[in-house]
Nucleic acid binder design. Structure first.
Lengths: 161, 161
DNA sequence: TGTAACGTTCAGTGCATACTGAACGCACGA
DNA sequence: TCGTGCGTTCAGTATGCACTGAACGTTACA
């Protein structure tokens, strides 16, 4: 691997670490992000200089998250991994999901915690409503983006904002 | 603190931990989320059963993140903390910021990593473009939400989606 | 049937870091 | 000029967890 790739994979590892995920997972993800061909566990282990056990575990976790895909070839017993085709919406779904868990906790608080203050109750309700609204808007924006990508450059350049 | 509040603060602590932040930070945040009045470091330390040192450090971090606010009262040497008024947009900005750092790394890869495959280059470009588009849409949605909140229920119910 | 080459699992280790308790600096009031 | 009561800092600890190496189960091929 060239210097720039090493630099990138390491950076991606640190970013993953900052989000509470294993550093190796980030490096695997980074490596596959700049790779056209799917890569085997052995390739990844050697390129990244880590044990095959770690690669196996973390690649499976990433695949479960939906950001990686496991591919297999006929007559080849190796497992290969590659970046998921719809990578962007996957990562967005991942992030939105975490935020949703957060909002769900707020909802539980609103329902279970005895709150005297009307202002606090309104704050919690407002938070939940804002999340619902924004999640909706994000979904709509994503669909719109996909449409735009699918219908290639028309002569009229102009969808209005 | 009642059982439901303890349950909620602990849950919030675990959610914070899952995102790579100190558990105590989450519990502090949770406690202030369901509290009308600002709370002092001593109050928080006692209610949550942790050292004042931890509360001091973590509350300051959360304030720097923008999700908490430090308030002081005249003739009172205590520091008080409360949940930020514009909590939702703060947490959104926080999350969007982390995503942006991620996208910036992708951009660096596109510029520095020698990539032979045109498909991979297109993937990276597509990722960046999608992020820019979505960040824009999120910003617009947030402004729209704020407007809607500020202009209270008009007789004509109808802003269209 | 035996062997080699897979991916997975699991106990063990090392490292990072959250958290604590004590010391510290500082501002206020007597 | 003390003493008191703040918030902060810092060295030390321990707790969790990422990561490793070896053992394991499984499948394909000889």
């Amino acid at each position: 691997m060239d210097t720039a790739t090493i630099r990138f994979t390491d950076r991606m590892g640190l970013l993953f670490e900052a989000e509470g995920r294993p550093r190796i997972a980030g490096r695997i993800f980074g490596r596959l992000l700049v790779s056209e061909d799917p890569r085997s566990l052995d390739q990844l282990a050697e390129e990244l200089g880590v044990s095959k056990a770690s690669v196996s575990t973390n690649a499976r976790i990433l695949a479960a998250m939906g950001v990686l895909e496991r591919v297999c070839r006929p007559g080849d017993r190796h497992d290969y991994y590659r970046a998921a085709p719809d990578l962007f919406s996957r990562t967005m779904a991942e992030r939105l999901g975490r935020w949703q868990r957060f909002t769900e906790a707020v909802g539980e608080a609103r329902r279970t915690v005895p709150i005297r203050s009307a202002r606090v109750r309104a704050r919690l309700r407002g938070y939940e409503a804002a999340y619902a609204y924004l999640a909706d808007a994000i979904g709509a924006a994503l669909r719109e983006w996909d449409e735009r990508r699918e219908s290639p450059p028309l002569a009229s350049g102009g969808r209005t904002r």
